[in-house]
Amino acid sequence: MEIHAYEKLWLALALVLIVGFIGTITYGAAGAGIDMIDDKGGTVDPATLDQHPKFGDPGIERNGENSYDVYVVARQFVFEPGTTEPLRVPAGSTVTFHVTAADVIHGFEVVGTNANTMAIPGQVAEFTVEFGEPGEYGMLCNEYCGSGHHVMEGKIVVMEQEAFDSWYEQQQAQGEAEN
């Protein structure tokens, strides 16, 4: 089969390009340490989410020094927490999100960042991000989830450590009082 020399050159360059792309992605995973959403979050029964030890009362939990777990439930058309009250995290912390959906498929996007995942009923999306300076982020649902999809949004507030600690202790005390 005869192939013109120029086209052979192009074929070779195309292959180099493809390998270069795969190499960049691999560098991002291995060198820059970017992890993918995968199956490590495990599964959950969406029908009994209310009785789930974590998703039953979703929110933030300290799991070590400067390290937190955040449980988020996405349902038509709110994030819990996030929509009715902001999702609060301390500045300079490492936060592992656990996101699931109660009814239909949703999206969870922290606007203008790379924190972005699907929220699928029955599945838990688990991913870790590092928060820096105090400030605010918007969050929104980026997968169509029904007629009110466009109102499904929320806010993440990154607080000074001290302010966060006092808020967190207050939350803990309230939780214990309710139990």
């Binding site: 606007v111 982020y137 929104l140 649902c141 980026n142 997968e143 999809h149 109102v151 806010k155």
Partner: peptide
């Protein structure tokens, strides 16, 4: 800028794009 696809509204309440 983070503007999502498949949504009817240009703007949200909690943040600006």
């Amino acid at each position: 800028a983070g503007i999502p696809r498949r949504t009817a509204e240009p703007q949200y309440q909690n943040f600006e794009f």
